[in-house]
Amino acid sequence: MDALEMLLNRRSMAKLKEPAPHGEVLENIIQAGLRAPDHGLLTPWRFVIAQGEGLDTLSAIFAEAEIKSGSDEVIVNKAKNAPKRAPMVITVIATVKPHEKVPALEQHLSAGCAVQAMQMAALAQGFQGMWRSGSWIFNENVKNAFHLEQNDQIVGFLYLGSPAMKPLDVPQRNSQDFVSYL
């Protein structure tokens, strides 16, 4: 699959199974993230990989966040199971650095670009993924578990693995509905 075909047909996949990316494939995924647009060369991101026992740790982080938020048992159990939807989850964190020309928002966007690049690198190498966010990226207990500084922000959890289903068709959108010219 060439790059344009891959971009035009990208589709998140919710059902993932072993194996997860590893070795050179995983390094390519990380390197793709490190090539995200980076105004000022601030490298405003870091990646925390969870697999194996790390998924259990992430599960405990999510469950504890829900317990401390007063969620009911159903939601706590859902939180416990969330990381187990894939054999690997990469938490992508925008690590904001003070800079007079590069505001925090731009650094958050750069980290978001890293997630997209990593997902595309996984797809290019035969793996699949899903970028998840949700309330946990804003939850103070989750942020504390990842040792975030005041302006840092989790931008997403990139679930990675092998496809466990056929991807759904990509919805066709009319570009004219989204484009205007000055």
Rank of each mutant, 00 (worst) to 15 (best):
V170S: 05
F47W: 09
E73I: 05
P87M: 05
L4G: 01
Q51M: 05
L16E: 02
K80P: 11
L168S: 04
A3F: 14
A82Y: 14
V76R: 00
F138V: 09
E106V: 00
K166D: 12
L182H: 06
Y159C: 03
A117K: 00
A111E: 07
D56E: 13
A117F: 11
G156P: 07
S71K: 09
Y159N: 09
I154W: 07
S175T: 09
G40M: 03
G70N: 06
F146M: 05
K78V: 10
E64G: 08
K15F: 01
G54T: 00
N144F: 02
G161W: 03
N9R: 12
E149D: 12
T95E: 14
K143M: 10
D169P: 05
Q51H: 09
N81I: 03
N28K: 08
A122E: 08
G161D: 11
S162K: 03
M88G: 15
F138S: 13
I90M: 13
L16A: 03
E53P: 01
I93Q: 07
Q119P: 01
M1N: 09
A124S: 12
F47M: 06
V102Y: 11
Q128H: 12
V76E: 00
W136C: 10
H99D: 07
S69K: 08
N139S: 15
D2Q: 14
V115T: 12
P163S: 15
K101S: 03
R10I: 04
K166H: 07
L58S: 04
A3D: 08
E140H: 08
A104D: 08
Q128W: 04
P163D: 15
I75R: 14
L7P: 13
A32E: 01
M88I: 05
A65M: 00
P171G: 11
G126L: 14
A3S: 07
P37Q: 08
A164V: 06
G70L: 14
L8R: 15
Q107W: 09
S180A: 10
A63H: 04
D2F: 15
P83H: 14
P83M: 13
Q107I: 14
I93C: 11
P44G: 12
K143F: 15
M88A: 15
S133Q: 13
F157V: 03
A145Y: 15
L160C: 02
A122S: 09
K15T: 02
G126C: 10
Q116V: 13
W45S: 01
R35E: 00
D169R: 03
L7E: 15
E24T: 02
H147F: 05
E64C: 04
